[in-house]
Design a protein around this nucleic acid. Structure first.
Length: 262
DNA sequence: ATGGTGGTAGAACCA
């Protein structure tokens, strides 16, 4: 049975509930993982999503910041959450599908502006979060699992509009890329998007602070779909829905999709 | 080197 999954940093699920419903109706993924919901769980507009055919949800939320949710057409079992780096922020939730696949939905800390943990506590928290991810997946050796989310790092040179100009910009510094790669390798995670689209520039985020994001095209690939090796071979048709960034009152992120034949 | 925009919440913080 083919199974389609998507991840999208929505930047307020309440403000953009209509856009979420539009995406669900247009594309019909089986599962949609959202980040930056910026809402307590009991104020997520679940009824709007139910009416669109998504009756199942597993979520964690804080008032005003962070927040992650997994919406699904088919039943989900809450599989818990991690509090990496001890931040007490809603940055992860996991769900188990009926076919046994576990979906991890992450919102990795952005890390502030200065890429130096001595001068910027947020950057230290980001590195600590990634180190805890690495330690956890080194221990847990995940199987039959998918990891998605806004990881707030663009690891490859062709994941940013200018590798050279972003080397000292948080999201593309070598120390962050090394920390993310270490976490990925600890779990044996395969980068499904790059398995399917190995060549060329690929972005999922364009800043709001640009007069014409589309023409300037100064993007970064911050949103990722990973899978464990036992199911990564079943993945195909990865795609980033760039046109969604051009919708009215958009998120600054575009949704990333993948399909698995499982 | 700076400031550009947007969300939450009702000033300042975060991205």
């Amino acid at each position: 049975m083919p199974f389609t999954l998507a991840t999208w940093n929505i930047n307020s699920v309440r403000l953009r509930a209509g856009l979420v419903a539009d995406l669900l109706r247009d594309e019909g993924p089986d599962v949609l993982c959202l980040q930056e919901c910026k809402s307590p769980v009991d104020k997520i507009p679940a009824e709007t999503f139910r009416e669109a055919g998504y009756a199942h949800m597993v979520a964690r939320g804080d008032k005003g910041y962070n927040g992650v949710a997994i919406l699904s057409k088919v039943p989900l079992e809450d599989a818990g959450d991690f509090d990496f780096a001890g931040l007490k922020q809603s940055r992860h939730v996991a769900a188990r599908l009926e076919n046994g696949v576990v979906v991890h939905n992450f919102y990795v800390p952005a890390g502030g502006d200065v890429p130096d943990r001595e001068k910027n506590e947020k950057f230290g928290q980001k590195l600590d979060y990634l180190a805890d991810m690495r330690a956890h997946f080194a221990d847990s050796r995940p199987e039959k699992s998918i990891l998605v989310g806004d990881l707030n790092i663009a690891p490859r040179e062709d994941d940013v509009w200018s590798h050279k100009q972003l080397l000292k910009v948080v999201s593309h510094t070598p120390v962050e890329v090394e920390a993310l790669t270490a976490a990925q390798e600890a779990g044996g995670w395969v980068d499904v998007t790059r398995k399917d689209i190995p060549e060329g520039q690929l972005y999922s985020w364009w800043s709001y602070r640009s007069r014409d994001w589309d023409a300037a095209d100064k993007g970064r690939r911050l949103d990722h779909v990973w899978a464990t090796p036992d199911i990564a071979g079943a993945a195909h048709s990865s795609r980033i829905l760039r046109h969604v960034r051009g919708w009215e009152k958009p998120s600054d992120h575009a949704p990333v999709f993948a399909t698995f034949d499982l």
